[in-house]
């Protein structure tokens, strides 16, 4: 019971810190590029697929560090569930619960497969 409580507390703290940290990066990025009069949604009325690597290179070459800060924030936010699943996998292995460890590893592989799907689409 005590182990379960400490595990839940650890995951709870991890999730909170993760959200706050990613939120901070997103806020810095967005706040610094915010313009009162502009319509920032004009470019998104029609779908135009530009892969992340091209977007990253565009802002990197432009030295737009604040936009890159936003991307870092989103990367951290998306990474939170990945890390949470990885943590559970190691915990199940440590407790020798190999069935649950196998299931968690399949979930983690599934999450990674999502990234590959995104690259290929």
């Amino acid at each position: 019971m005590k182990d379960r409580l400490s595990l839940e507390l650890f995951i709870s703290r991890f999730l909170t810190i993760g959200v706050l940290l990613s939120g901070l990066f997103i806020l810095i990025g967005w706040g610094s590029t915010f313009k009162f009069s502009a319509n920032p949604f004009f470019n998104f009325e029609h779908y135009d697929q530009i892969p992340l690597k091209d977007l990253f290179l565009f802002y990197f070459n432009k030295k737009d560090w604040f936009q890159l800060c936003s991307f870092l924030g989103f990367s951290l936010l998306i990474a939170i569930p990945f890390l949470r699943v990885l943590f559970m996998l190691f915990l199940y292995l440590k407790n020798k619960e190999f069935s649950l460890a196998l299931i968690s590893s399949m979930v983690f592989i599934g999450l990674l497969a999502g990234l590959v799907l995104g690259m290929k689409s």
């Binding site: 990025g29 998104f44 697929q49 995104g118």
Partner: peptide, 15 residues
């Protein structure tokens, strides 16, 4: 993750 890699998550909207 897939949408992010594909470039669909844009900071102007998502932030």
């Amino acid at each position: 993750g897939a949408y992010f890699i594909r470039g669909d998550i844009r900071p102007e909207l998502a932030s």
